[in-house]
Design a protein around this nucleic acid. Structure first.
Length: 875
RNA sequence: GGGGGAUUAGCUCAGUUGGUUCAGAGCGCCUGCCUUACAAGCAGGAUGUCGGCGGUUCGAAUCCGUCAUUCCCCA
C-alpha cells in the first residue's frame, strides 16, 4: 500500500494549520452561543518561545479546542506585553552595539527605535505558537501599548488618582543603579553570596578611650550613619544608654538609640543605622526621628557626603574604606559571612535601597473584593492549595510602586508647573492639564511651560487590565464584545505571577467592571530539566521547542509536555516524553492503516465482532464519562492519560484484535462501519491534544463534505453504559490472559491452536466465548463436568479451565505452581478470618464492608477446594 | 525569621468523606517474540516498611502530634 508505515507530521501540520485559518475556525465574534473566552498570558515582546510557553499554551489550546467542540463560541485572544524594563534594556543594548548611546537620543528618537525593534521581534513568539497548533483568534492580537489599550491605562491612572488611590510619596525603593530605575520587589532576585562582615569601632563621644564595635557588611555606608542602635535589654551595653558615638572618618556625633529590633546575637549586638540606604534602617529612622543622609548618586557612585570618596563607585569605595579604616585603627577584624543580596532581574546589578519620590497605588481597599471572591470560591484556583498563598499575600498587601524611570511604556500623565511638591496636575493631555492648572492656581500658563512626568508606569499596571482592555472594555464601556466575552472563563498561568498579575487582574476586574475577570485559574508548574533545574536561556538547558516540533511533530510534543504535568506541579521535562507522544501518534496512524487496508465483502458478521462492538461501545462511553469529569476538574494530564489508554489498550490491543479478520481476509460491512465510527469518535477525543493527526486521519478515513472537519466536530455525548457487557468482558479478558500465560510458560507458539475445557460454576456468563476462542486461538472450547487430568489449569471467577498438556509435560512444575498458589490463598483466608472473628470489627464495620469480607472468605474457601482437587488430579 | 506546599515502585505522579477501584497508572526495567497495522511494535512479568516515630480507631497512605528531608513565597 502507498500509506507509509510511520506518520510524517510536518507536511500535515502546515497543511492543516493554514486550512483551519482559511476556514476561519479560530475567528470568533459574538453570537447566540455560549461564549468561552481565554486571554493568553501575553508573552514579552523580547522573548522567544521557551518550554514554559509550550506548556502553558498547549493547555490553553486543549481547553479552547474542546470548548469549541462542545459547541461554545470559543475565543482565545493572543497578544504581547511591552515589558518596559526588559525591552528597554534590549533596545539600549542593540543601540550600543551600533555606537548609539541612549543619553544621546531624545525620548521621541529612542521610542522610534524601540517601536522598530518591537515590530521586528515582538511577534516571534506568536508565530512560533502557530507551529504548536494554537488556535488563537489572530485577528484579535493585542499589544499592551496599542493606542486604545494605552488610553485605558492612562484612564485608569487618572481615575485612581481622582479616587485618591494613587499618591506620590517618598519611599525606600529597590534601585537598579545600572538601569537607573526603581524595581518592584518582584523584579529583585535574592542570591546568597559570600561576603565579609566588618567589625568597626566607634568612639563614645566625650570619652577618652571608650569604644563600641559594630558589625556591618557595608562599610562604605558608614558615612551615612545617623545612629547606633542597641537592644534595651542587652546587659552588655547598659552603660551606653543616652550616650553618643562618633562616626569614624566623618567625625560626626550620632545618638545611641534603643530598639528591640536589634538582634543581640548577630554581630556585636550594636547596629549602625543608615536610614537612607537600608530598608530596616529607614523604618528605624522614621520611628526614632533620625536624620537621613543620602550618600549615593543615582548611578551608585558616592556624592559629596561621601567626602573624599565622592564620585567613586560603591564597590570601589568598599575596598578603599576597608583599608582606610584599618590604617586609622577603626577596623577591629573581618569575618567571612554569607548573606542574601538583591540583584536586578534584568541587569544583574546589585540593588541599592534608595529613597526616592515615586507613584504608588494604595492597595488595602482595592484588594478586599479580590481577596473575598477567591476565598469564597467565586473564582476557583486549580489546584485549590494556592488559595492559602493568595490569602496570605492579599491580607498583607502593600502599596504598589508603579513608577519606573524608563522611556518605554506608558508615560505617567502627570504635569508639573512648578518646583513645589504640590505643583502638578494629573490629566490625559497637555491641554486638559492646562485647564486643571488654571482651576488649581487661578493662573493660565503656557502649554510649553508644562512638563510631563518623565517616568513610565510599571508594566503590570497595564497588564492588569488585559482581560478588559483586549475587548476595549474601558475605552468603549459596555460594548458588545465586552458584554459577550467578559468575564472570561479560564486563565492559565504560572504561580510565580499570582501576585503581580493574577491578583491585580482580579482587583481591576472588580474595580472597573464590578465583576470577576475569569472563573478559573489553572496554575502550571515550572518546566525543569532532568537535574531539577529550572529551564532557562542562561543555563542553556532548555531544548529549542521548534527543534522538538520538527523532530517529534507538534502533536507528539504536545502529548510529551502534558503526559505528566498535573496542575501546580513542576514538570520535569525530558525529550523521551516527546518520544512517547510521537509513538502515540504512530499508534493511531497504524490503527488507521489497519482499518484502511480492509477489503469489504458481503459476509455475515462474526459473533466475536458483534460482541466486540457491544463491548467497545460500553467501554468508550464509560471512559468518556470519566474523561469529561477529569476535564471538569482541570485534571488535564489525567484526561490525556485516560484517552491514551482508551486508544492504545482498549481500542488497539483489544477491540481491533477482536474484529480483525485473518490475513488477507475481507471484513463484513457492518463491522467495518462500526469500527470507522469508533475510530472517528476517538479522533474527536484526541483532537484537542493532537489536532493535526486528528484532522489528517479524519479526512482519510472517509470522504468529507465541505466543512466536515474534526476541529469543529461535536464532542461525543455520553450514552448509557451497559455495565453487564463490561463485566462479561472482564471474564473473557482474564481468561485470555491466562491462556497467553499458558502458551508462554509452555513455549507454545501463538500460531498453534490449543484445546480448552471449562468446568463452569453457576454464575458463568458465556457471552464472550467467541472472543475467547478467537484471541486465545483455540481449536476447541468444550464444557466438562470432570476435571481433566494432566492439563494446565487456571481458575477465573470460580470457573475452572483446562488446557491439556499435549506433548510437553512438566507435572512437577505445575504441582509447584499450584502449591504456591494454595499457600497464598490459605494465608489470605487466614487474614480475612482474623477480621471476621474480631467482635469489634463485626460490631463496628458497616454492612457493606462486612459483606465484602464474607464474600472474600467464601471465594477463598472455594478456591482452596479447587486447588486441592487439582493437585490431587495431577498424575 | 514568617507563611504555604510536598514526601507513595528506579523516574514522574494518581489515590474524593478512614473500610474491594487500596496499595495503582505511565515511563523505565526483566523475559519471550521480525505473529500478515505498528520493533516508534506484540505478549507476559517483577517492583513498595505509602519519609521516621508516636497517637486516635475494630480498622490509617488517608485523621492528630512530632521529627526529618525538600521546594516555593515573603522579610
Amino acid at each position: 500500500m502507498e500509506t507509509p508505515k510511520t506518520y510524517e507530521p510536518l507536511q500535515a501540520e502546515s497543511k492543516w494549520y493554514s486550512y483551519w485559518m482559511d476556514k476561519g475556525y479560530f475567528y470568533s465574534k459574538p453570537d447566540h452561543r455560549e461564549a468561552y473566552t481565554v486571554v493568553i498570558p501575553p508573552p514579552n515582546v523580547t522573548g522567544v518561545l521557551h518550554m514554559g510557553h509550550m506548556l502553558n499554551n498547549t493547555i490553553q489550546d486543549v481547553l479552547v479546542r474542546r470548548a469549541r467542540m462542545l459547541g461554545k463560541n470559543a475565543c482565545w485572544v493572543p497578544g504581547t506585553d511591552h515589558a518596559s524594563i526588559a525591552t528597554e534594556a534590549k533596545v539600549v543594548q542593540k543601540l550600543r552595539k551600533e555606537g548609539i548611546k541612549k543619553s544621546d537620543l531624545s525620548r521621541e528618537e529612542f521610542l522610534k527605535h524601540a517601536f522598530e525593534w518591537k515590530d521586528k521581534h515582538g511577534g516571534i513568539i506568536l508565530e512560533q505558537l502557530k507551529k504548536l497548533g494554537c488556535s488563537c483568534d489572530w485577528e484579535r492580537t493585542s499589544f499592551t501599548m496599542d493606542p486604545s489599550y494605552s488610553e485605558s491605562v492612562l484612564d485608569v491612572f487618572i481615575d485612581l488618582y481622582k479616587k485618591g488611590k494613587i499618591y506620590r510619596g517618598v519611599r525606600m525603593v529597590n534601585w537598579d543603579p545600572e538601569a537607573l530605575t526603581a524595581l518592584s520587589d518582584e523584579e529583585v532576585l535574592h542570591k546568597e553570596v559570600n561576603s565579609k562582615l566588618f567589625y568597626v569601632r566607634y568612639k563614645i563621644a566625650g570619652s577618652e578611650d571608650e569604644w563600641l564595635t559594630i558589625a556591618t557588611t557595608r562599610p562604605e555606608t558608614i558615612l551615612g550613619d545617623t545612629a547606633i542602635c542597641i537592644n534595651p535589654t542587652d546587659e552588655r551595653y547598659k552603660h551606653l544608654h543616652g550616650k553618643q558615638a562618633v562616626v569614624p572618618l566623618a567625625n560626626r556625633s550620632i545618638p545611641i538609640i534603643l530598639d528591640e529590633y536589634v538582634d543581640t546575637e548577630f554581630g556585636t549586638g550594636c547596629l549602625k543605622v543608615t536610614p537612607a540606604h537600608d530598608t530596616n534602617d529607614y523604618e528605624l529612622g522614621k520611628k526614632h526621628n533620625l536624620e537621613t543622609l543620602d550618600i549615593f548618586n543615582a548611578n551608585g557612585t558616592l556624592n559629596e557626603l561621601g567626602l573624599h570618596y565622592a564620585g567613586k563607585d560603591r564597590f570601589e569605595v568598599r575596598k578603599a574604606i576597608e583599608k582606610e579604616l584599618y590604617d586609622k585603627g577603626y577596623l577591629v577584624k573581618t569575618e567571612d559571612h554569607i548573606n542574601k543580596i538583591g540583584y536586578s532581574e534584568r541587569t544583574d546589578a546589585v540593588i541599592e535601597p534608595r529613597l526616592s519620590l515615586q507613584w504608588f497605588v494604595s492597595m488595602k481597599e482595592l484588594a478586599q473584593p479580590a481577596l473575598d471572591n477567591v476565598m469564597n470560591g467565586n473564582i476557583k484556583f486549580h489546584p485549590d492549595k494556592f488559595k492559602n498563598t493568595y490569602r496570605h499575600w492579599m491580607e498583607n498587601v502593600k502599596d504598589w510602586c508603579i513608577s519606573r524611570q524608563l522611556w518605554w511604556g506608558h508615560q505617567i500623565p502627570a504635569w508639573y508647573f512648578g518646583e513645589g511638591p504640590d505643583d502638578y496636575v494629573v490629566a490625559k493631555t497637555r491641554e486638559e492639564a492646562q485647564k486643571l492648572v488654571a482651576e488649581k492656581t487661578g493662573k493660565t500658563i503656557d502649554l510649553s511651560a508644562l512638563k510631563q512626568d518623565e517616568d513610565v508606569l510599571d508594566t503590570w499596571f497595564s497588564s492588569w487590565l488585559w482581560p478588559i482592555s483586549v475587548f476595549d472594555g474601558l475605552t468603549k464601556p459596555g460594548n458588545d464584545e465586552i458584554k459577550y466575552y467578559y468575564p472570561t472563563n479560564d486563565l492559565v498561568t504560572a504561580p510565580e505571577i499570582m501576585f503581580f498579575w493574577v491578583a491585580r487582574m482580579i482587583i481591576a476586574g472588580y474595580e472597573y467592571l464590578g465583576d470577576l475577570p475569569f472563573k478559573n485559574v489553572y496554575y502550571t508548574g515550572i518546566v525543569r530539566d532532568k537535574l531539577g533545574r529550572k529551564m532557562s536561556k542562561s543555563l542553556g538547558n532548555s531544548p529549542d521547542p521548534i527543534d522538538l516540533i520538527e523532530k517529534y511533530g507538534a502533536d507528539g510534543v504536545r502529548v510529551g509536555i502534558l503526559i505528566s504535568s498535573p496542575a501546580g506541579n513542576d514538570l520535569p521535562f525530558d525529550t523521551s516524553q516527546c518520544e512517547q507522544g510521537r509513538n502515540f501518534s504512530n499508534k493511531i496512524w497504524n490503527a488507521f492503516r489497519l482499518i484502511d487496508g480492509w477489503e469489504v465483502k458481503d459476509l455475515e458478521q462474526p459473533k466475536s465482532a458483534q460482541k466486540a462492538i457491544a463491548w467497545f461501545e460500553a467501554k468508550f462511553n464509560s471512559e468518556l464519562a470519566e474523561i469529561n469529569d477529569l476535564f471538569d476538574k482541570f485534571k488535564i494530564s489525567e484526561a490525556l492519560m485516560a484517552i491514551y489508554k482508551l486508544v492504545w489498550d482498549d481500542f488497539c490491543s483489544w477491540y481491533l484484535e477482536m474484529v480483525k479478520p485473518g490475513y488477507e481476509q475481507p471484513i463484513d460491512a457492518k463491522t467495518l462501519e462500526s469500527t470507522k465510527v469508533f475510530f472517528e469518535d476517538i479522533l474527536k477525543m484526541v483532537q484537542p491534544f493532537m489536532p493535526f493527526i486528528a484532522e489528517e486521519l479524519w479526512h482519510q478515513v472517509r470522504e468529507r463534505q465541505e466543512g466536515d472537519d474534526v476541529i469543529i466536530a461535536s464532542w461525543p455525548e455520553v450514552k448509557k453504559v451497559d455495565q453487564a457487557v463490561l463485566k462479561g468482558f472482564e471474564l473473557a479478558q482474564e481468561t485470555i490472559t491466562h491462556i497467553r500465560n499458558v502458551r508462554k510458560q509452555n513455549n507454545i507458539a501463538n500460531k498453534v491452536k490449543m484445546d480448552m475445557f471449562l468446568k463452569k460454576n453457576a454464575g458463568y456468563n458465556d457471552e464472550f466465548e467467541p472472543v475467547v476462542i478467537k484471541l486465545g486461538n483455540l481449536s476447541q472450547f468444550e464444557n466438562t463436568t470432570d476435571k481433566i487430568p494432566n492439563a494446565n489449569s487456571f481458575i477465573v471467577q470460580g470457573n475452572e479451565y483446562f488446557i491439556p498438556f499435549g506433548d510437553s509435560i512438566d507435572i512437577e512444575a505445575e504441582r509447584k505452581k499450584l502449591e504456591e498458589e494454595l499457600e497464598y490463598t490459605k494465608g489470605f483466608l487466614n487474614s480475612v478470618n482474623k477480621k471476621l472473628q474480631n467482635e469489634k470489627f463485626v460490631a463496628g464495620a458497616p454492612e457493606q464492608v462486612l459483606a465484602s469480607e464474607r464474600k472474600k472468605e467464601a471465594d477463598a474457601l472455594q478456591k482452596i477446594a479447587l486447588l486441592e482437587e487439582k493437585l490431587a488430579s495431577l498424575v
